[in-house]
Design a protein around this nucleic acid. Sequence first.
DNA 1: AACGACGCCAACCGCTACTTT
DNA 2: CAAAGTAGCGGTTGGCGTCGT
Length: 358
Amino acid sequence: MGRPASNWEKVHQGLKKGPWTPEEDLKLLNYIEAHGHGSWRALPAKAGLKRCGKSCRLRWTNYLRPDIKRGNFSLQEEQTIIQLHALLGNRWSVIANHLSKRTDNEIKNYWNSHLKKRLTKMGIDPVTHKPKTYSLAPAGQRKDAANLSHMAQWESARLEAEARLGRDSKLQAPNSFHTQLGFYPTAPPPCLDMLTAGQAGCLRSPTDSATASGIFSAAGNLESLTSTMNFAPRNPLPTLVTGLSFASNSSAQIEEAIAMKEDIGKSMDTIMALSRNDHAYVAESLKTVNENILQPDFLDGLSDLLFQNSDDFNSSNSKVDCENVGGSCSDDQLEENKNYWNSILSLLNCPPSGSPVF
DNA sequence: AACGACGCCAACCGCTACTTT
DNA sequence: CAAAGTAGCGGTTGGCGTCGT
């Protein structure tokens, strides 16, 4: 008798499961090289494979794709994964988007089998990326960290948008080789610094969330941002606006900066250009909208904000952490922490391909 | 040499989001 | 606008290799 077959079993009756043989790999590879993958569901029959389309897609994306880097992770890659995981959590596909040539599955496995344990050994909670004693910290220190958390929320959303645009751009700008194969390798997502600025400008009060929502909706592909941020009710004064105050020392300057950044929100053309990877248009448009947004001062201010927060954090929680692991906090370690956040910033401000948009 | 414990990683499978009809 | 189809994501599983006893 036994249990009734599940839906999956009904659909996949007679299909092979388990490890792929070299013959199967070859069939799949040959077929995709000749015809592209097209519809994954239809592919197995056409390619002469007794597998489901999903299995073929997974085998291709995680193993056979020619643009996959295999082997040990470099120190740089490890650092990137840890930093992005601190911002994004288990959003492996978004993280993978920033580690060219690595698959989300590979990163996920590496995290679970290596990095998670390493962080745990170091006394860091791999989920929150905070020292395990963090919850005992005084309220003021937690507030500083909360600011960082807000920052992370924004950057998380931005990275998600980048990943989305990256995916979309694969569909929009294939080269002949990829057209032939029917797939597109990881394309450099356009730099969304303007979105960061847009967020800062448009979200200075809870009521402005509607404006932001409109912008993201108009951008079409960015719509899901609104669903992941949860910004307005909980964050009446988003951290990035505070970040602006580091770039502009007087309130008049802040207002001016905010007003200018709202121009970006109004510039739907610019956003649409961004979503279609029309970098030249975006660059030109931004120049006319607000020349100050992407000035180094602004980003430095943002960076300072992080440093200030992390310095506070250093002087309290991180020191606790240092003591926890059996040492004391030196200036070097503080500097290291500062560099940690600096590297996050630089990571976020540079497309993974290293190709500057502006 | 045999066995069990453990770790790694490819693949599975269910769920969700997105697209098409 | 709803339903159906499709693709993508992420948690989980199971097989295989390695190491220790």
